[in-house]
Computed example of a mutant assay.
Amino acid sequence: MAKHEFGIMDAAPTLEQKYNNYEPEKYHCISVADDAIEPLMKEFSEIPCYWHSLKREESGLAYCGISIIPPHSLKKFLSIIDGKTQFNELNDLLQKAFQENKFVIHFGI
Score class of each variant (00 low, 15 high):
E25D: 14
K102L: 05
K96R: 10
T85L: 06
L40E: 02
G65D: 02
E16R: 14
N21S: 11
K84H: 11
A33Y: 05
P39G: 04
E58V: 05
E100G: 11
L74A: 03
G65R: 00
F6Q: 05
H52A: 08
Q99S: 14
M41S: 05
E89Y: 12
F98S: 08
S59C: 13
A62L: 04
L61G: 01
I80Y: 03
F103S: 01
N20W: 10
H52P: 12
I81P: 01
E46Y: 04
E25F: 14
F87W: 00
Q86F: 08
K96I: 11
I109D: 13
H52T: 09
P48N: 15
G108H: 02
F77H: 02
F98V: 09
L74D: 01
Y19E: 13
T14N: 08
N88R: 11
A2W: 12
I80D: 03
H72Y: 14
D10L: 14
I69T: 00
P71F: 12
I37C: 03
L93S: 02
A12R: 12
F87D: 00
L54K: 03
F6D: 03
Q86V: 09
A2C: 11
G60I: 01
E25R: 11
D35I: 06
M1D: 04
I80M: 03
I66E: 02
A62F: 02
Q99L: 15
E57Y: 15
A11C: 11
N101S: 09
N101C: 06
H52D: 08
I37E: 00
G60F: 00
K76E: 05
V32C: 04
K55H: 12
I37Y: 02
L40S: 08
G7S: 06
Q86I: 15
F44A: 02
S73V: 02
K84R: 08
K102R: 09
P48A: 15
Y22G: 07
A2N: 09
S45G: 13
K55R: 10
Q95W: 15
H106P: 04
D34A: 13
Y50A: 07
P39A: 04
L15K: 12
G65I: 02
M9V: 03
D34H: 07
L40A: 04
E43Q: 14
F6W: 10
F107C: 06
K42L: 06
L40H: 04
H28V: 15
K18E: 15
P48L: 08
Q86S: 13
I109F: 10
Y19V: 15
H28I: 08
E38A: 07
H72T: 12
Y27D: 02
A2Y: 06
E23Y: 04
D34R: 14
F6Y: 12
Y22V: 09
H106M: 10
C64A: 12
